[in-house]
Simulated scan of single mutants.
Amino acid sequence: MGIRYYAYAFDADRTEEALKDPMSVISDDPLADAWGMEPGFTVGVIGEREPAPERDLLYLDKAWSQLQWVVASLETQGDGAYRMFVGDVSMTDRGWIPWSRTITPDEALRVRDGLASISDEDVERVLRRQGRRPPMGPDTDDLLHFLGKARAFVDQVVREGRGFAYMIG
């Protein structure tokens, strides 16, 4: 199925809980939330139920690694947008262990500003650089679509004074 990226917004009063354990604010079945399936599904039809609201869930599918690579190429300090893409799974002989992290409401402001500072042209320029190849992933239009989803999600999180926790796994 592949390694995917999910971010769940949480209210500011849950910040300490989320810092102690990011998974406490992440669903037990984020793929079901993203695809509108019943939790724990093994066979079914996508859209059996409503996907989680976009104000609460950001689903970047497998584009996260390419976004991580592009944003890291553009940020020198890694203190803005890159904060929401840091991490990778830990591989074991039985599969992978997900990576999770909490972004506090204060950190979400820096992430939002970092995302806003990255133009579509910046992304296209990074992708065209000679001698550099991003990890396998979506084409440029799809990548820009996912970046737009990330911007919209973080904008909403900041407007509502919330934070978010994400999982790569």
Score class of each variant (00 low, 15 high):
1 M>S: 15
2 G>M: 13
3 I>K: 08
4 R>V: 11
7 A>I: 00
8 Y>F: 14
9 A>S: 13
9 A>M: 04
10 F>I: 03
12 A>M: 04
12 A>C: 10
13 D>W: 02
14 R>I: 06
17 E>M: 14
17 E>L: 13
17 E>V: 15
18 A>V: 03
19 L>T: 03
21 D>A: 15
23 M>D: 12
27 S>E: 06
28 D>E: 15
29 D>I: 04
29 D>R: 03
32 A>R: 01
32 A>K: 08
33 D>Q: 06
33 D>C: 02
35 W>L: 15
36 G>S: 03
37 M>A: 12
38 E>M: 12
39 P>L: 11
39 P>F: 05
40 G>Q: 02
41 F>V: 15
41 F>D: 10
41 F>R: 02
42 T>Y: 13
44 G>K: 05
44 G>I: 05
46 I>P: 13
48 E>A: 09
48 E>F: 05
50 E>K: 09
50 E>M: 09
51 P>H: 01
53 P>N: 08
54 E>F: 10
55 R>G: 14
56 D>L: 12
56 D>N: 10
57 L>S: 05
58 L>H: 00
61 D>N: 13
62 K>Y: 07
64 W>A: 01
65 S>Q: 11
65 S>F: 05
65 S>V: 08
66 Q>R: 09
67 L>R: 04
68 Q>W: 07
69 W>S: 11
69 W>G: 05
70 V>P: 02
71 V>H: 01
71 V>K: 00
71 V>S: 00
72 A>P: 06
73 S>Q: 14
75 E>D: 12
75 E>F: 03
76 T>V: 13
76 T>L: 14
77 Q>N: 11
78 G>D: 00
80 G>S: 04
83 R>Q: 12
83 R>K: 10
84 M>C: 10
84 M>S: 07
85 F>E: 02
86 V>H: 06
88 D>W: 12
88 D>Q: 13
89 V>A: 01
89 V>L: 04
89 V>K: 05
90 S>G: 11
91 M>P: 08
93 D>K: 09
94 R>I: 11
95 G>N: 04
98 P>D: 01
99 W>T: 08
100 S>A: 10
103 I>V: 08
105 P>N: 03
107 E>H: 03
107 E>A: 08
108 A>M: 01
110 R>V: 14
110 R>H: 14
113 D>F: 07
115 L>N: 02
115 L>T: 00
115 L>Y: 01
116 A>K: 09
116 A>N: 12
117 S>I: 09
118 I>K: 07
119 S>E: 06
121 E>I: 03
123 V>L: 01
124 E>T: 05
125 R>N: 15
126 V>L: 07
126 V>G: 03
128 R>Q: 10
129 R>F: 13
131 G>P: 03
134 P>W: 00
135 P>T: 06
136 M>F: 11
139 D>V: 10
140 T>M: 07
143 L>V: 07
144 L>P: 05
144 L>K: 07
145 H>V: 05
145 H>T: 15
146 F>C: 09
146 F>W: 09
147 L>A: 00
147 L>G: 02
153 F>E: 02
154 V>M: 07
155 D>I: 02
155 D>Y: 05
155 D>F: 00
156 Q>T: 15
156 Q>E: 15
160 E>N: 08
160 E>Q: 11
161 G>T: 08
163 G>Y: 01
164 F>H: 04
166 Y>D: 10
168 I>Q: 01
169 G>E: 06
169 G>P: 06
